[in-house]
Every structure is written in C-alpha cells, then in structure tokens.
Simulated assay, not measured.
Amino acid sequence: MSIIEKALNKAKTQEQETNSATNFSNTAFKNTDRVRSISPAIPLFSGNDYEKTRHDFEPAETVEIDWQRLASMGFVTPDDVNTQTIEEYRNIKRPLVSNAFGKGSLGIERSNLILVTSSVPGEGKTFTAINLALSIANERDKNVLLIDADVARPSVSKTLGIKSSPGLIEYLESTDIDFVDVILATNMPGLSVVPAGKKHKYSTELLSSNKMGVLAQELSTRYPNRIVIFDSPPLLAATQGEILAKLVGQVVLVIEAESTLQSMVMEAVAKLAPCDVVLTVFNKSQNTGMDGSYYGYGQYAH
C-alpha cells in the first residue's frame, strides 16, 4: 500500500469517527511538540521604519475574469451552487480559515499567510491555490489576496486570463514601485491578485530579501480579515518554495495521488519541517468513492 493510500485511509477513518458530512477529512497537522517561531532575517518594525514600509494595499486597477471560461476548466466560480467542487473546497478551506481567524490561530505566527506548493511540477498546486482563493473570497466577510510567487513558471495570471503586468518581482527589485501598484482587483468582490511579474535572473535572491520579509510581516498584520495565498514553486524544483515557506504560517502541500513517489513526498515534507502548520491535499484521487472526484484531503506528519 502506497504512502498516499495509507494517508487517505487514515483520513477516511478520522472522517467516520467525526461523522463528517463529506467524503474528505477536515483535520490538519500541526506541530504539537513545540510551536516554532518563523524567524527569517527580517528587520523588526520600529517607529519611522514601519511608517516607511506601509502601503495602502488597495488595488488601483480592476481586471475582468471570464467566469464561464474558468467554470469550463473545473474552477469554483461565484455562480456555482453546491457543486461537488464547491463542497470539496469548503472542506479543504475549513481548517485553514479556522487557523487564520479562529481558536486555531493561537500560537501560529502569520496564520493568515498560506503557501500552496507541491513536490514537483504538474501536481495541481496552481489549480488548488486558485480554487482555494475563490472559495474563501466567496465568503462575505473574507478578503483574499492571491500572489503568484512561482516567478520562474508563473501560471496564475494566464489561468485567470490576466494580461501581462508588473508584479511581485518589479516590486521587490524597485525602490520606486509601491506594493499597491502591482495589486489587481477583480470582478469578484473580496479577491485581488498580484502577478509574478517579469523573469529575473536573481529572483531567488529577491524572494529571500529583507524587503520580501518585511512585506510578509505587514501582509500578516495590515488587515485582520484578509487571507493571503501564495502560489509557490514546487519544493524539489527550486529553492524558492522552501524560502517562501519560512515566511508564512500555514502550508498546503499538494500531492498527486497514486503518482508522486513516496521518496519525493518525504523529501518535500522534510523541507517544511520549520513550518507551524502543514496540510496536504491529495489531487486527482480516484479512491474517494465519488464519481468524477479528483480531490482528496488528508493529514501529514513529519
């Protein structure tokens, strides 16, 4: 039995014990031996330094998303009502939102910052990141900022039909661009997007810079009702994913069920050891017992 099958079976057992109404487990793994503080090399805010880094974070431009096109690609859309995909992502987002705003947030630094990643390319991390953002933004009292941090192979803008525009890289490398200049509002209330921006040979250094750390810190505290979702590079394809994981409070590891090698999953999990909360989404799973289902949800321990 593969490691993914074992995790799925464990998730199903937990689901039965809690009389869940869906076919997916809604539990999350949290390091219980000790809560690790996420402490990259970031200068602390103080006085005037903090004021210099403040941004309004209100988008200056609005882009129109083609919801019919997204729906044909299997994404959650505002007009969907109780479809299977919606129910699945309701279940997936539940522990994340609880950790961000509920009792589960206690002891989790930057709990409203969520990184979505995978072990290798092609497992569905961007699909998961976008659907998660859309599902949370559908809630009336939640705002979501979706940041395409997969700067080497950006997919968020292309998937959403957003034309090329300055993004995260331009903000990080420039002293003349404010963060508000790279935020795009959408025709979905509560959802804003930051594109990856241009290709840059020093993108890894920019993502590990103090400026990125300061941005993450401010994003986590600026608005109490906002969730920030980063679509990250795969952990085994680039070092950028591991760098970004140290800046957030929660990580979602997307695993292609029945396909990703156990050794790859374990190597990816090891890279997430410093993270407070790690959840797994089993994508393209055929063992859920639901016709046409492509998603599963489970828990993972280091």
Rank of each mutant, 00 (worst) to 15 (best):
D80R: 01
Y223S: 13
T32E: 14
A7D: 05
F282D: 05
Y202H: 04
L247K: 05
A137N: 02
C275R: 01
R54M: 11
S232N: 02
K30E: 10
P95D: 01
T18R: 12
Y297D: 07
A245W: 04
T260C: 08
N23L: 02
T117P: 10
D141H: 07
T117Q: 03
T288F: 08
I65A: 07
T117C: 10
S20V: 09
Q262D: 14
G74W: 03
N143L: 04
S232W: 03
E109S: 07
A268F: 00
T22F: 14
G197L: 04
I177D: 09
V269E: 01
G124N: 01
V252G: 11
I38Y: 06
T186W: 02
K271G: 07
S232F: 02
A196H: 07
S111P: 13
I136Q: 05
L132K: 02
T126N: 11
L219F: 06
R34P: 07
Y171L: 07
I162D: 12
L145E: 06
T260M: 02
P43W: 07
I108S: 07
T204G: 15
R153E: 04
V63Q: 04
I243T: 08
L236F: 06
S119K: 00
L244V: 04
K163Y: 10
N138D: 15
Q14H: 08
S285Y: 00
K211T: 10
F57C: 13
L113K: 08
G124E: 03
H55Y: 09
A238D: 05
M266R: 09
D181P: 02
E15Y: 04
V228H: 00
E256R: 10
N9R: 06
N82Q: 11
A196G: 15
R94T: 13
P233F: 00
I4W: 00
V180C: 14
E64F: 13
D150E: 08
S192I: 01
F45G: 07
S2I: 02
Q68L: 15
R153T: 08
E88N: 14
V269L: 03
K246D: 14
D276T: 12
R226C: 12
V248I: 05
I114G: 06
L96V: 05
K198Q: 10
T32F: 11
T18A: 15
V265Y: 00
K12V: 15
P195F: 01
Q68D: 13
G122C: 02
S208P: 05
I147E: 03
V277E: 06
F230G: 12
S174T: 00
S165G: 11
S25E: 03
L146Q: 02
S165T: 14
P234C: 00
E267D: 12
